[in-house]
Amino acid sequence: MEYVDSLTGFRLDGRRPNDMRQIRGEIGVVAKADGSALFEMGNTKVIAAIYGPREVQNKGQQANNQALVRCEYSMANFSTGDRTRRPKGDRRSTEISLVIRQTMEACILTHLMPHSQVILIEFLVHILLKFFMYFLPKICFLQIDIFVQVLQADGGTRSACINAATLALADAGIPMRDIVTSCSAGYLSSTPLLDLNYIEDSAGGPDVTVGILAKTDKVTLLQMDAKLPMDIFENVMQLAIEGCKAIAHYIRGVLLENTKQLECRRGI
């Protein structure tokens, strides 16, 4: 099949090879959560909700001097054309959960929140006597929960999830090094293509998903499960990075807009 029309140079949906789909981000869609966001890339629609920082629920998972980040990825039953029941914790969603967690962990300043409630207590300790240490109340560790759910799937869900999570984390006010954004790029019909949709994704060609810290230009995520010659791979990856930067630019705009609204509401 021809994924890029050789006569007109358009992709199946009318984009040029280095066009992204239409993106849209919205902050504050789940009132109950500490931070939440909705992110759309074309027909892919993802919702993210953040809970935390809050007390670690499972003591076994706690890390010593940094906050714990947890992530759960799921797909709504209605997210694809055929409505199938999706078991929780299947191989694919576990893998994507892990990928998103690692990507977000790389930009959240977890070391700033080792056990923040304890800071107060430690402060007390310093003021009071040192031997009171024995009677310290239990130290409480922190965790951040990221929930992402795919409402509508049309290719590039993991990129969309990462972008949504970034927006939601910013909404929750969690300290981050930088904005992480992600975008995919593929290589079909001998052309590097930006932001694959479902048809292009299921063509079986290589699909490179890249996540970067937009300002510092650091790669936090790079995935591809196909073979590609090195020089072509570099081109494809460069295209994906361009895509990430464009998304970062947009996300920054959304955040700025959001902050302005907050200012208005507070009447500053």
């Binding site: 199946l12 949906d13 009318g14 984009r15 066009d19 789909r21 239409q22 074309g42 027909n43 054309g81 055929d82 049309d154 949709n197 048809i199």
Partner: peptide, 26 residues
């Protein structure tokens, strides 16, 4: 400008699914 095309398709297993695709106008 964005238009979406939607159509109904029969899968190999014989189920009928609705397919929605984006269609960009330039």
């Amino acid at each position: 400008m964005l238009q979406s095309k939607s159509f109904v398709k029969k899968t190999k297993q014989g189920r009928v699914v609705k397919v929605v695709r984006e269609h960009y106008l330039r």
